[in-house]
């Protein structure tokens, strides 16, 4: 594990609704206080709105991937917002982050979320409670390591 230390690891994956309601917050690394992760995710939600409201510079394409939202002491928070304003958040541990991989990861996560909300047992706007979704997220994060 010594070689992997320099690379940032995903610590938490969260899905937040348009109305800023947390739909899914999942700790994917050991040894981190869950409550603190909730706090970190919550504290970056305003930044989503800020980025969304900011006009896109001419020539640039508006992108779902928002990149680094904010560094939070020993974490780095990355965001992605879908066209339907669902916010996807990945909290990374401090270290070397490969943006390209992270972008991939968030796009795949988006795919998983779509499958989860297409589940007929899922009621729109409620927390996502799905073993399949959670397993998918864990697998996604594990494959990125």
């Amino acid at each position: 594990m010594a070689a992997a230390d320099a690379r940032a690891q995903a610590v938490c994956v969260a899905v937040v609704s348009r109305a800023n309601r947390p739909l899914f917050v999942c700790r994917v690394a050991e040894g981190v206080d869950e409550l603190r992760l909730h706090h970190v995710v919550h504290s970056c939600l305003d930044i989503f709105d800020e980025r969304r409201a900011a006009p896109t510079p001419p020539g640039a394409q508006a992108d779902a991937y928002l990149g680094l939202l904010q560094p939070a002491v020993d974490f780095r928070v990355y965001g992605y917002v879908t066209n339907t304003a669902t916010k996807l958040v990945v909290v990374m541990s401090d270290g070397d982050v490969r943006e390209l991989e992270l972008r991939q990861l968030l796009r795949r996560l988006h795919g998983l979320v779509i499958h989860a909300v297409s589940n007929p047992f899922y009621v729109a706007g409620t927390p996502i409670v799905s073993t399949k979704f959670e397993a998918g997220v864990r697998q996604l994060v594990a494959s990125a390591r």
Binding site: A64, T82, T84, T86, R107, S118, A124
Partner: peptide, 19 residues
């Protein structure tokens, strides 16, 4: 309504956000 919601979610993945 619920079909439309899910369809829209699914079909706009590759799109840039609406202005």
């Amino acid at each position: 309504f619920s079909v439309g919601q899910k369809l829209a979610e699914r079909q706009t993945t590759a799109r840039t956000p609406f202005a």
